[in-house]
Amino acid sequence: MSSSIPAIVLAGSRPGPDPLLTGTSVSTKALLPIGGHAMLVHVVRALRGSPLIGPITILAQNSAELAAEPGLAGLAGLHFVDSGQGISSSLAAALPPGDDPLLVTTADNVLLMPTMVAEFLAGAEDSDVAVAMVERDVLLARYPESKRTWLKFRGGWWSGANMFRLRGRRVLPLLDFWGRIERDRKKGLKIVAAFGPWLLIGALLRLFTIRQGVARAGLRFGLKAKVVPMSEPEACIDADKPADIELIEAIFAARREAAIGQPL
C-alpha cells in the first residue's frame, strides 16, 4: 500500500447512562482514563503511529470537549466534527467525496496498535467494505476470561474488532440500512436476519463460513464485502464493561513491562 488513507474515529456517546462513567467526573466515555490516558488518546496515537493513516477525523456530539483533551496536543492532522445521534448517519455525513478508501474505528478500541492497522488494511485491499474480526479460539487461547458477542458460522465463532475499511460514498446504501438496525448491534442473529431469510437460515444451519456470509450480505448492496481475520486477540477487546477495563489495564501493564525489557 503506497499511500495513506484518512481515518474516522467514532467517539460519541450512546443514548442513556453509561455504567462505565458511574461514580466518575468524566462526561463522555471517550475521555475515560485507562492505562494513564483517555481512551481516545490511545486510539489516536495508534493511528498517528501508522504510516498508512493520513488525516484523522474525530466524530462526537461535543467534539470541542474532545479537542481540548491535553493528551492529543501536538498530534498532527486531527479534525474534530460534531456528530448526530446515530452512528450510521453521523458517519455518512462525514464521508469524503468520491469513493476513495478510509478506515473507521471507535474511541473504545483502546488496545489498537499500528501493527493491527497494517494487518487489517493489507487484508482489506480490493474490497468496498471490509470488517476486522477475531475468531474465538484466537481470543480464548490468550484471554479465556474475556467475554465477547459471537457470531456463529461454519468453521468458527467470530467477534468484531472495531475496524472497518469503506470505499467512500459507494457504501451509503449500506450505512442507511445499518441506521435501521444498529440498535440491535449486540444481537448477532437479529443482525444476520436483517439481511434476509436466506442469510439467517444459512447462519443457523452453518451452511457457510463468515467470509461467505459477509460476501453475500455485501452483494445485497452491490458491494464487495470481506472479513479480515485478525491474528492479535487484543484487536477485539474493546472497553464496553467494567470487566473489560480490568483486562485492558492488565494488558497495558504487560505491554509496559515488555517495553522496559527491550534493549535500547
Rank of each mutant, 00 (worst) to 15 (best):
L40N: 08
A193P: 07
Q212F: 05
N162G: 08
C236L: 03
D184C: 14
D108K: 08
L205W: 14
D99T: 15
A259C: 05
D126A: 15
L199W: 09
L174W: 15
A64F: 12
I245M: 04
D238F: 15
R165Q: 08
N62P: 05
S2K: 10
T105N: 01
L174M: 10
P114H: 13
P15D: 03
A141W: 07
P233M: 03
V44E: 00
A93W: 12
L174A: 13
A30H: 04
G123A: 06
K29M: 00
A7Y: 11
W157I: 00
G23I: 01
R183T: 13
W150G: 06
L174Y: 15
G16E: 01
W158P: 10
I191N: 00
E119F: 10
G168P: 05
G86F: 12
R170W: 00
V110K: 01
A250I: 03
G86L: 06
A215Q: 04
I87Y: 14
A94K: 05
D18S: 15
A122Y: 10
A253I: 01
P101D: 08
F164R: 02
R165K: 11
G16V: 11
A73G: 09
R185D: 00
A68N: 08
T209V: 00
L205M: 13
L166V: 07
S231K: 14
E182D: 12
G84L: 00
G156E: 01
I245W: 03
R216M: 01
F221I: 03
S83K: 05
I251M: 00
A130P: 07
L205T: 15
G16D: 01
I56K: 03
I237V: 11
G160D: 04
G196Q: 02
F208T: 07
A38C: 06
R48Y: 05
S90Q: 05
A254Q: 10
D184P: 13
A92L: 03
A225L: 01
L219W: 14
G36W: 05
D82V: 10
R206L: 07
V228C: 09
H37S: 12
W158I: 02
G12A: 09
E135D: 12
E145C: 13
G213R: 06
R136C: 02
A194S: 15
T209R: 09
I34K: 07
K190Q: 10
G74R: 03
Y143S: 06
L111N: 02
S2Q: 06
R165C: 03
V26T: 14
L199N: 15
M163S: 09
T28C: 09
A130M: 01
V41H: 03
E119D: 13
A124M: 05
I8V: 12
S89A: 15
R185N: 09
A141K: 12
K224N: 08
L139M: 04
V110S: 07
R183Y: 05
L247T: 13
V214D: 00
P101T: 11
R169T: 09
A107D: 09
E69W: 06
P242L: 00
G196M: 01
P17H: 15
A258G: 13
I58C: 04
S89C: 04
L204D: 06
R169H: 05
H37R: 15
L200R: 13
G98L: 02
P6Q: 03
V104P: 07
P173F: 13
G36I: 00
S83G: 13
Q61I: 00
A259Y: 07
L47P: 09
L91A: 10
